[in-house]
């Protein structure tokens, strides 16, 4: 268990995503000045505004680092910077990703490659790099955002789905490897539809299947604290995806899902 009264070092990769920002606020609210943040993303200005916001909300210290996480030269540089700033790393949340245009990935191989690089390859490299830090220090919590899209390949988004599905296998193997370290955990969070600025234009948003970034953040918090292996966010996607996974191909192939 981590005490709320001691310093807590949290690294967030992809901090400018709506879910990550909601999560940062949640942790800042709970831990206040005991929280030290190392937040990474592409947009330096956005990182600064998040830093100012969580500082006003009471976070202890916030360090920002602008870089393209999908374009890794050497992960050790960033990992060393994070360790240097935080001392010890109590938790890492990996929240970046991008939803590719499925039809483009079918005609442009570079798009397909990019979809995997952003959503799988680079993510796996960061996960492994921070897992190595945590096994060395013998404690820590890793959290990574997957997607319900990774549960079954479907015509509407199988490039993204394959990347997130691959990520799930990777995390599964990593969890096996971490089993020898009782105080080190990796948690996969699989959100469904999330109401973010990117989805503002979708008709029907706000319906029963849609969740706010705050709701997803609360689910991440719970899952990470309990060192869960894998959770759907919100939980009811477990039921939805169980049905979709068990549809016979003959039936699925008649749909446009």
């Amino acid at each position: 268990m981590t005490s709320k009264n001691k310093n807590y070092g949290l690294v967030v990769l992809g901090a400018t995503s709506s879910i990550a920002e909601a999560y940062i606020r949640l942790v800042a609210k709970e831990r206040g000045s005991n929280l030290t943040l190392f937040i990474v993303g592409r947009n330096a200005e956005a990182l600064e505004s998040i830093a100012a916001d969580v500082t006003a909300r009471g976070a202890g210290n916030v360090v920002t680092r602008a870089c393209d996480l999908a374009d890794i030269d050497d992960p050790a540089t960033l990992v060393a910077a994070a360790t240097g700033e935080l001392g010890t790393i109590d938790e890492v949340l990996i929240a970046y990703g991008s939803l590719p245009d499925q039809s483009k990935t079918q005609t442009d191989p570079a798009e397909l490659e990019k979809a995997f690089q952003v959503n799988f390859t680079s993510t796996a490299i960061w996960l492994q790099a921070f897992a190595n830090v945590m096994t060395e220090q013998k404690f820590g919590r890793l959290a990574v955002i997957g997607s319900v899209a990774g549960d079954r390949g479907r015509m509407s988004n199988y490039a993204y789905g394959a990347a997130k599905g691959g990520l799930e296998r990777f995390v599964q193997g990593l969890q096996h490897a971490l089993a020898a370290y009782p105080n080190v955990s990796a948690t996969l969070i699989k959100p469904g539809f999330v109401a973010t600025p990117m989805t503002a234009h979708i008709e029907g948003r706000g319906g029963p299947l849609w969740a706010s970034p705050e709701r997803i953040a609360a689910d991440i918090d719970k899952a990470v604290k309990r060192r869960k292996l894998s959770v759907y966010a919100p939980w009811f996607w477990w039921g939805v995806m169980t049905i979709i996974r068990s549809l016979p191909a003959a039936i699925l192939h008649k749909t446009k899902l």
Binding site: S18, S49, I50, A52, D53, T55, A56, R57, P197, A200
Partner: peptide
């Protein structure tokens, strides 16, 4: 819609002056 523009820009909790 401005709902996602919900950040503090600064807050001085000694004087109670905030910008958001």
């Amino acid at each position: 819609r401005t709902r996602h523009l919900d950040r503090f820009i600064s807050a001085d909790w000694e004087t109670g002056l905030i910008r958001a």
